[in-house]
């Protein structure tokens, strides 16, 4: 697979996981300064890692939520809570992942993550 095909494959997965609305905004917001970065993450994160066999997308969402909550990456966590629901995770499963973060990464990380996820789930409810 060459770089263009990898980018195209990555874009398909990226859209399926993050949703067209989000990706359309990211694409529309891309300029000369961010274009190479957008291309890199589409090929690397989405075209390589997320497309690997061996773990299904629900599983990848579980790991992603745990990692982002641990690292206090609030904005990315909100995006991936939406993605997790799209990948078929239930709210209860999101809750379980964050509960587990509380005992391994500490209460502050989980506290933050619960606030972000709660807010995101409320928005999803409209």
């Amino acid at each position: 697979m060459d770089d263009r095909e990898r980018h195209a494959a990555g874009m398909v997965v990226r859209r399926e996981v993050l949703g067209d609305a989000h990706v359309d905004r990211a694409v529309a917001g891309t300029d000369e300064f961010t274009a190479d970065f957008q291309d890199l993450i589409t090929r690397y994160a989405w075209g390589e890692i997320w497309t690997r066999p061996g773990l299904d997308r629900r599983t990848r969402s579980c790991i992603t939520l745990a990692v982002l909550a641990t690292l206090h990456h609030d904005e990315e966590l909100a995006m991936h809570v939406r993605a997790a629901l799209r990948n078929g995770l239930t709210r209860e499963e999101v809750q379980e992942v964050l509960l587990q973060v509380s005992v391994y990464a500490g209460v502050p990380a989980a506290n933050r993550a619960f606030k972000v996820a709660q807010e995101t789930l409320r928005q999803e409810d409209g």
Partner: peptide, 8 residues
């Protein structure tokens, strides 16, 4: 999930 947190 624990493995993910530990790696992070």
């Amino acid at each position: 999930i624990t493995l993910g947190v530990l790696v992070a």
